[in-house]
Write a protein that binds this DNA or RNA. Structure first.
Length: 403
DNA sequence: CGTCCACAGGAATGACGGGCGG
DNA sequence: CCGCCCGTCATTCCTGTGGACG
């Protein structure tokens, strides 16, 4: 899109909307100029990377913290500043940011890295090893310092192992004119444990931890953004603090807080209101949850949905369910559909998976003489679950019959 | 106070489909 | 393009266990 088109759109939106001036600043990928309560991390990352300005290779950095704690924002922010400073000083630094959830194969990561040093690799046709070789050659001939950011690095490693990581952290031995530093970002704290110890030690030359935000810190963040996003005066009292409080309950996730605020604004706009009130925030919360449930459930395999339906039916009549009850009910559902059922062992795992996805709560309890089981309750609203389940044709059949 | 229920959940293994490397 | 490998879903067999009941 051309710059003038972008502007045109922003103007059109600002003129038409009674609520927003610029809703983009509430999106998760927006990098603000101010990052409240991350001064410490900014300073630390800055000091780690500063040697780059004098042409020295900075230490590799390993960054971890839960989702929505500002890891990506801080990293992008610092690197942007670093790059412009380098430009000022006449030094060259190549920065390459790769999100390995999006580019989730070794080849695609190398493809991106090559792009950053001005090398265009074919989409397909050459082996990963060859791609790597060409990238290294191009990088070295450029005589530069490259800083590679691998975001959500756990995805790449879980799918394809730490091979690439290992090579990148040791790449300096192969390079004579260029140098390379790696910044790895993850929100999986256990991830570090199943890394090759050699990779761990070289990538973790320096580690940076991002603690979760508390409610009042989230409020500061939201206030900053709300000022840019909304027309003056449309956000009612208590809206910001409610968003902050709700997100603080979810391990201080700033992304969640911003989502709540943005969706609340969108709902207000859809309703034709000229303000954003706390009621819009509550609606936003249910809408976000609803969307999440629909998304998660729709991607579930058939037996997962059937187990979930069994849980739903039992919970609706009894309030809670046990593994045995669920399995019996699930089997009867399979009989009705005339399909084969899986074993109880498997159902047990499916229940664990549903628990981890936050669709149900499953707590292991011992009922003494009456054995040990899981007590299962729903973690989401019945309505969301029902609409999500209805989308599956098989489940649809079962629901119609029970009418 | 020992039993024994009703499962939890680990380990080994297999079918199957899709994607990678050569 | 083809074989191979890997992730996913599933089975089989198994050992482990908190606490009410007798």
């Amino acid at each position: 899109m051309k710059a003038s088109d972008v502007l045109e759109e922003v103007f059109a939106q600002a003129l038409s909307s009674k609520i927003f001036v610029n809703r983009e600043v509430l999106r998760p990928d927006y990098i603000p100029d101010q990052l409240p309560h991350r001064e410490e991390q900014i300073a630390k990352l800055g000091s780690i990377l500063a040697p780059a300005l004098r042409g020295y290779r900075p230490s590799n950095v390993f960054i971890y913290g839960l989702t929505g704690t500002g890891k990506t924002a801080v990293t992008k922010f610092v690197l942007k500043k670093l790059k412009s400073k380098a430009l000022e000083l006449g030094t060259s630094i190549d920065v390459c940011y790769v999100n390995t959830r999006q580019d989730d194969t070794t080849y695609r990561v190398i493809f991106r890295l090559a792009e950053c040093v001005g090398l265009k690799l074919p989409f397909t046709g050459i082996s990963t090893a060859e791609a790597y070789r060409r990238f290294m050659k191009a990088l070295d001939s450029r005589a530069t310092l490259m800083i590679v950011v691998l975001d959500e690095i756990d995805f790449l490693v879980k799918k394809h192992g730490d091979e690439l990581l290992y090579r990148l952290t040791r790449a300096n031995e192969e390079l004579s004119l260029s140098k390379i530093s790696v910044i790895g970002i993850t929100n999986d704290l256990k991830f570090v444990d199943n890394l090759d110890p050699r990779v761990r030690s070289s990538l973790g030359e320096v580690e940076l931890v991002f603690p979760p935000y508390n409610a009042s810190q989230l409020e500061d963040i939201l206030n900053d953004r709300a000022r840019l996003a909304f027309r003056p005066g449309v956000v009612r009292d208590g809206v910001i603090s409610l968003c902050a409080a709700l997100a603080a309950r979810e391990h201080g996730d700033a992304r969640r807080a911003l989502d709540l605020l943005r969706v609340a604004g969108e709902i207000a706009e859809r309703e034709g209101a000229d303000y954003v009130g706390v009621e819009h925030v509550y609606k936003a919360r249910t809408e976000i949850e609803h969307d999440r449930v629909v998304e998660v459930v729709s991607s579930l395999p058939l037996h997962g949905k059937l187990v979930l339906l069994a849980i739903y039916n039992i919970v609706r009549s009894r309030g809670k369910a046990t593994t045995g009850e669920v399995y019996a009910h699930y089997k009867s559902l399979c009989t009705k559909l005339n399909i084969e059922s899986v074993t109880q062992r498997r159902v047990s795992d499916i229940i664990s998976e549903l628990d981890m996805m936050g669709i149900v709560n499953a707590r292991v309890v011992s009922r003494g003489r009456y054995g040990k089981t899981r007590i299962i309750t729903l973690a989401v609203s019945e309505e969301s679950l029902l609409t999500a389940l209805k989308e599956d044709p098989y489940v649809e059949v079962l629901l119609d019959r029970s009418r």
